[in-house]
Amino acid sequence: MTSTTMAENTASAATKVGLATGAAPFRLIRRGLVYLLLSIAAFISVFPFYWMVVGATNPSAEIIKGKATLGGSLLTNAATFFAQVDAPRIFFNSAFIAVIATALTLAISSLAGYGFEMFRSRVRERIFGLLLLLLSIPFAAMMVPLFVMFSQAKLVNTYVAVILPTVASIFIIFYFRQATKAFPSELRDAAKIDGLKEWQIFLFVYLPVMRSTYAAATIIVFMANWNNYLWPLIVLQTAENKTITLILSALTSAYTPDYGMILFGTVLATLPTLIIFFLLQRRFVEGMLGAVK
């Protein structure tokens, strides 16, 4: 909607200018094309979301036929979902794993990022380079050895097994290191002169200054953990320990899937990430643009 009105405004503005210059019709067409493409792109990215919400209100048979308008089966779908899935337990699993993993990841990875940037040395650069190299190893290649480790540690089918491999995230370390480059070293020097110890500087100076970076990282890490699929799939064994992502996948593969019920579950599973995103949205954008002003 907004993009159309904007297009109209720009179009009329362009016409006015166009009276004076001969190149205006071209600009008009170019503008038009740009907005057309943007509208198409916006439609493509919004439509699946719309489809998911609308699907949750329709019975399975209607969804298969391609009905894309609101229906009256929301309550039926909800009832079926809650009857088939132990929702409180499953959502608790997902939330517990995602929250603890996010907190630990932020704590450990931001410390590492801070350390790599503040205490530079040739050896540490080597280690950092090695870490970046590790980013290129696909997880599938590490799955079997990782499983052997957790199996020997008797941690298979526990939350710990899901959380531990994610807490030292190389990407987040890298992200914090990049952000720390913008952290004014004068602040640290001043704090040192005032007699603060390194951990105090980190806690009382660095952390408040970098809160936008933390906010952005929270969204990224929370989403990755909430949606994490492959490793929880392998390491969680019993139904009562599984996360919502795994349960949704299982529901989809039934011989006669109830799409209305599945889409209802999908909407529920999307909510937490959505809420976190909207709560931290302003900071997220700031964090992405560069945290320190």
Binding site: F139, L155, L164, P165, T166, A168, S169, I172, A224
Partner: peptide, 25 residues
């Protein structure tokens, strides 16, 4: 990105191996 576990994560895993809280019988 988070699926990628670093060495550090694995070492920590071994270190905490003794603590089997949340472990299921």
């Amino acid at each position: 990105m988070n699926r990628i576990a670093s060495r550090r994560g694995r070492l920590l895993g071994l270190a905490l191996a003794g603590i089997s809280f949340f472990s299921v019988a």
